[in-house]
Write a protein that binds this DNA or RNA. Structure first.
Length: 295
DNA sequence: AAACAGGAACCAC
DNA sequence: GTGGTTCCTGTT
């Protein structure tokens, strides 16, 4: 990997990345604050706005520095993880080969646990576009303003901001019945009853137990938080899409989501979450199980 | 315009 | 711990 910095323009150019494909990374449903602007993806990450351009060879990061690369982006884009070896292991399962090929270049982003927790509470019984809209509105209403290139963006709200949120204002963001869950979870975090900072270093099962205490957090949402922000590679979030594709590809006698999780745990072990990403993306792109996709 | 899509809470057993 | 019902809102 070769990095070139242009300090005057706040631009970084990175060459030599493998298994890296921004459209798949940003559109596989793991993150909600990245948007295509016609040439690249603009994202809000922490207190930064960053733009990502990709020409197939060179990754260009706009509005950032070499220091940020070391302290933020290297980990955020999961560049320390060897995807070659993960793909090699998963490819031993012939059933996964096509899904892996289809979602080539997916990476599991290491996102902020707090933002990920609230975002996936919003995701319950919800589609990706509406999740994005709601997260955006919540950020506009409760988050701090940042500007870049004459445009205004908003940071994801703080724990305090959402713990104190007015219920009607929350509802006006389109979160529906999830509003009280969001506020309740924010209050649990603020009280210190759950400390997100400790979850990375504890066991998968213990961390999951903690997350399940939050209102609006069940097994699927907890697994998303564990996988997308706490580096728990064995987390295997099961939603309807995963349910459909697992039934189609493995046709096991799995009667509910709990069975599917256990099956994945046994079959994929500590890289189950990576398998989940390929499967999820594959299922959605192919509209598996949807009547409208049947000819 | 009624039907649909999408996880967790809650209650009953 | 399992099974059935309800929660809200944008899209079709």
């Amino acid at each position: 990997m070769k990095i070139e910095e242009n300090r005057d323009k706040d631009v970084l150019k990175i060459d030599g990345l493998t298994n890296f494909n921004p459209p798949h990374i940003f559109e596989c449903g793991q993150a909600f604050r990245w948007n295509w602007d016609g040439q690249g993806y603009v994202g809000i990450v922490g207190d930064k706005v960053v733009r990502v351009l990709w020409d197939g060879t060179t990754l260009t990061l706009e509005n950032t520095t070499y220091e940020d690369f070391n302290t933020i982006w290297q980990d955020y884009f999961d560049l320390n993880t060897d995807y070659g070896s993960i793909i090699e292991k998963l490819s031993k399962d012939p059933v996964l080969v096509e899904a892996i090929k289809h979602g080539w270049g997916i990476r599991i982003l290491n996102q902020d646990p707090w933002e990920t927790l609230i975002s996936f509470i919003i995701s319950a019984r919800n589609g990706i576009n509406r999740i994005k809209t709601t997260v955006d509105k919540i950020s506009q209403k409760f988050g701090e303003k940042i500007t870049w290139a004459d445009k205004v963006y908003y940071k994801f709200p703080s724990v305090d901001a959402l713990a104190n949120a007015d219920e009607d204002e929350l509802r006006s963001c389109g979160c529906g019945y999830r509003g009280p869950y969001i506020k309740g979870t924010a209050q649990l975090i603020r009280s210190g009853e759950i400390n997100l900072d400790t979850l990375m270093s504890i066991d998968y099962k213990d961390a999951k137990k903690q997350l399940l205490k939050c209102p609006g957090v069940g097994p699927k949402v907890a697994d998303c938080v564990l996988l997308f922000s706490l580096k728990k590679g064995q987390a295997f979030p099961v939603d309807v899409w995963i349910g459909r594709i697992m039934e189609e590809l493995y046709s096991q006698e799995m009667k509910d989501f709990k069975d599917i999780r256990e099956f994945a745990e046994n079959r994929f072990g500590d890289i189950a979450g990576y398998a989940q990403q390929y499967l999820f993306y594959y299922a959605r792109e192919k509209q598996i199980g949807k009547v409208s996709s049947r000819v």
